[in-house]
Amino acid sequence: MIALFLILLSGSVSPSVVGAQDRPEGFEQILPRGRIAAVSEPVYVAADEAKIAPSSWVLGVVIDGRPLAYSLNLLNAHEVVNDTVGETHFAAVW
């Protein structure tokens, strides 16, 4: 939805406009690339084992009949989860 984790981490960082040729116009490097590590080998647990508050918001998806849930609070620290189910290569982004 938004670069939420940047808000948390960038409090003491002075952002600078980076003028590298391949960077998009107006791009501001707030944190070093890689500081917010994407999840590329996700691990899942069964619903009954998941310690998630009942009122917590999740991104729920069903791919090839397989339901998966991503806590938004957990995604805040990673922004992106790369995964594959069947033939579907997807990224969960928050």
């Binding site: 939420l4 948390l8 999840v39 996700p42 691990v43 899942y44 647990v45 069964a46 619903a47 998941a50 310690k51 998630i52 508050a53 917590s56 999740v58 729920g60 069903v62 397989r66 339901p67 998966l68 849930a69 991503y70 806590s71 609070n73 957990l74 995604l75 805040n76 620290a77 990673h78 989860v81």
Partner: peptide, 18 residues
């Protein structure tokens, strides 16, 4: 979806709302 699975990172499936 009672059969759902949930993402787990370092043994955690949720975190505080920051």
């Amino acid at each position: 979806y009672p059969e759902t699975r949930a993402l787990s990172i370092d043994g955690r499936e949720d975190a505080p709302d920051a």
